[in-house]
Design a protein around this nucleic acid. Structure first.
Lengths: 133, 133
DNA sequence: ATGCCTGCAAAAGATTTGCACGCCA
DNA sequence: TGGCGTGCAAATCTTTTGCAGGCAT
C-alpha cells in the first residue's frame, strides 16, 4: 500500500542501516549530511507512513518519539538518564506475565512499552572515577 | 522544604482526593471549576515542585505528562487506546525480573515505566455489541 | 530587605496542517 | 486527469521562561 518514494526510501535505509533510535530532528540532520535534504514535514509524514506500514518501529520516550528498525525481534529498553544511551533487552518472563496480567484484567492487550531508567555501566564507572578524583 | 501555598495545596488536594491521572490542562479546568483560578504556569511549576517533594507521582504517557497520588503503593498501567482509561496493576514477578535484567546489564536501575496498551473490558464489550448490530 | 511564589504573556520545542506545485499511473 | 507526495510556512499543542509584582519571614 505504501509508496516508497525516494525520500521514504532514504529514511528507511538510514534507519535500517543502524541500530540507533532516531528522532525526526536527528534523522533530518543525518539525511541532510548524506546529501538528501528532505523537508522536516516530509520526514514526519514519512516516519508515520513507514510505521503504519510496519517497516519501522516507534517508541515514545519522554518528550519525543524515536524510531528504530523493525526487523529485529521484540525487545524493551534500558534508558540511561546520564548520557541518553538506549540498550535493548528481552525477557520472556516479563512478556509472559504481561499477558497474564492483561488476561486477569480482561484487557485486550495489543502492545506494551517497558522502559527501565537508570545509569548505564559506562556512566556509572565514569561517575565513580569522578568521585574518587 | 517545599512551601505549600494555597495554590499548591489546591493542586495537591485535587489530586489526592481522586484516583485520576491528571494532566496540567485538565487539572487547571477542574481547579477553575472549583473556584481556584490558578495560572497555568503556576500549575506546571506546582506539579513539578510537588513531584520533586515526592507528594505526587508522574507518568509520561505518550505526548503528555500525567500526575497521580503518591500515597499508593507502586504499580504500573494498563492504557485503553479507545477511551483513554488507565487501570493500575502490580506484578511482583515483573518487578523482580526487571531488577534481574538491570543487574545482568550492569545497569544502575533507579526507576521504570511499564505501559500495557490495548482495549479495556468496557470498550471491548461495547465494540463487540457494535459489530453484532 | 530577601527570597520564593504568582500571573501574564512571550518563547520554546515537537509535531501537524494548509496550500500550491509536481510527478506518475 | 486525479491522487498522492513534497516543501514551505504557518499553526498547534504542551511546557518553559522572563519579568514585574506580592507575600511572608
Amino acid at each position: 500500500m505504501i509508496k516508497l518514494t525516494a525520500q521514504r526510501q532514504a529514511i528507511l535505509d538510514t534507519i535500517n542501516q543502524s541500530n540507533q533510535h532516531w528522532d525526526a530532528e536527528v534523522l533530518a540532520r543525518a539525511l541532510s549530511d548524506a546529501g538528501h535534504s528532505i523537508g522536516i514535514a516530509t520526514i514526519y509524514r514519512g516516519l508515520t507512513a513507514l510505521e503504519d506500514a510496519g517497516l519501522i518501529e516507534a517508541i515514545h520516550l519522554g518528550d519525543k518519539k524515536r524510531y528504530e528498525r523493525s526487523d529485529k525481534s521484540h525487545h524493551d529498553h534500558l534508558v540511561c538518564r546520564v548520557c541518553g544511551a538506549i540498550e535493548e533487552f528481552f525477557d520472556a518472563h516479563i512478556e509472559q506475565r504481561q499477558h497474564d496480567v492483561a488476561k486477569q484484567y480482561e484487557f485486550q492487550m495489543d502492545g506494551h512499552q517497558l522502559l527501565i531508567f537508570g545509569t548505564c555501566k559506562q556512566c556509572f564507572n565514569r561517575t565513580k572515577q569522578g568521585e574518587k578524583a
